Simulated scan of single mutants.
Amino acid sequence: MKAIVCGAGIAGTALAWHLERAGWDVEMVERAPAFRESGYMIDFYGPGLEAAGRMGLRPRLEEVRHPVHEIGYVDGSGRQTSRLAVKAGFAEVVSLLRGDLARVLAEQVRAPVRYGTTVAAVRQDDEGVEVELTDGTRHEADLLVGADGVHSRVRELVFGPEERFVRYLGHHVAAYVVEDEDLSRRVGARYRMLTVPHLMAGAYAVGENRLALLFLRHEPDPAVPADPAASLREHFGQLGWILPEVLGGCPQPPELYYDQVTQVEAPSWSSGRVVLLGDACQAVSLFAGHGASLAVAAAWVLAGELRAASSGDLSPALDRYAARMRPVVADVQSFGRRFLPWMAPSSRLRITARDWLLRLASLPGADRLFMNSLSPGGHRLIT
């Protein structure tokens, strides 16, 4: 059996890992010109972390993790307004950069990646699928996997235009990493955030001389600005704290990640011998906090169903994969929509209420209840 995986991010690479070990021939294509080192801090836990453990990847994840010891808010002068210590035992969480998780997965995959390339056309029948790539080559396979993100080219070609599936959540998000030993030391292994109505900026030290930055802005217009770095400086540069310093050297894409905050709601995840995976069909938004975990878990579920399928019709396996994943994706998406307004509150009154909630959560016995409230309901995906 042969699969063409479009998208060499977390979801696509995790699936390639499984398929190779099941004896499949895997080809990978990625529209980015090279492996994407940039990214943002993620909390990796739940079913995805369990799957990674069963894949034997926990030792490498431990090597690249950056533990968070405290969550807190500051004002424009850098004065702390509220905080919550993250105690051991809240939950098994591995905090790390998105690019580091992608690299840990990629290290274990044999299939080379054809960078700077994506799918140009798809033709399929009961016997297989033919894929024409943007480099002009044609390839035949038993399965085409669209793991190419929110703006999936495979989904567009097979299922329809993007506007049918992408739900804009009224915010823009940006992230990048700077190298600055002094700033890294000042922020430390604590996730610090500054919020004013409709804006949030966060920072967290990663290593001895790097600082990961995250920005969220309420914006009714989904259009991404022509100059994302200038837009960040315009909206955040006068807020104080460390922001004038870090925004002075703000890069442009691809070093700067800048996008809409969106979710993907796709009625169908497969059509014939084409299946969607990861953000292409189940994006929950960065601020739902479970995207990477769901991507790795979905790859585990899809691979398991494919292993159990006959070499002929793959449709029943693809249907079972979607049936297992849909409930948890819907749950996390709902959680993300509820949680997002608390990340960039709409008023100073709401900011004050959030700070009081965080102070109350630091009381004995209340901390665990608060942390549990930051996760949607549990689902058993890894069996």
Rank of each mutant, 00 (worst) to 15 (best):
L358S: 08
D227A: 13
V104T: 01
A11D: 02
S38P: 00
G336T: 02
E20M: 07
A16L: 01
L276G: 02
V178S: 11
G202E: 11
A366V: 00
A223L: 09
A106H: 12
L105P: 00
L216N: 10
D355T: 11
G76K: 05
S231Q: 13
L277Q: 02
G76D: 04
H218Y: 12
L232W: 04
P222Y: 00
E140K: 14
S362Y: 05
G76Q: 00
A175K: 10
I10L: 04
G78S: 01
G149S: 03
A298W: 01
D180Y: 06
L247M: 01
W24H: 00
L216D: 04
G76L: 01
F35N: 01
L256P: 04
E305W: 06
D148L: 10
P161Y: 02
V122A: 05
R114A: 13
F35W: 07
A288G: 12
E63N: 01
T262Y: 03
A14H: 05
E162P: 07
D319E: 15
V196D: 09
Y204V: 14
R36A: 15
R54F: 00
E62C: 08
V113I: 15
H139G: 07
G12A: 07
A297Y: 02
L357H: 06
E179C: 11
A147C: 01
A223T: 13
R185L: 12
F159W: 06
M55R: 08
V284F: 05
A322L: 07
Y73E: 09
D43G: 15
D135L: 10
R54G: 09
H18C: 10
S152G: 04
L97E: 10
A283V: 08
A212S: 15
A226N: 06
G72V: 10
A288E: 03
E27S: 12
P225I: 09
L19H: 06
R337F: 03
W300K: 00
Q282L: 10
D148V: 10
A223H: 05
V166A: 01
R192L: 14
Q252K: 12
P47V: 11
C281S: 15
A11Y: 04
Y73P: 00
T383Y: 01
